[in-house]
Amino acid sequence: MTESVSGISGMIIQKLLANPKVPRDIDGNSKIVEDLAFDSLAVMNFVMEIEDELDVSVPLDKLADIRTINDLAACLHTLKAGNA
């Protein structure tokens, strides 16, 4: 399934594009706050959706270091690997 970092990144982008307010031209390097115009609460709520998809929980302090979609994918990948 979506176990590799790029696979997770692709899944995140798909989920984001389901929201019509998100710009159409996003990729793995898009910055979540700046390029997607998400505020801190929107980021936390979006991450909750991804958590369900991958069956992991992302502690909030980890979110502080995340800028891009690829950062988020890498973080989820590490957490997922740690759980396995």
């Binding site: 936390m44 909750m48 992302v58 502690p59 302090d61």
Partner: peptide, 13 residues
Amino acid sequence: GAKLSGAQVIRFR
């Protein structure tokens, strides 16, 4: 308070 504690924070719905 959670931030001040330094604990890992997980939100539930």
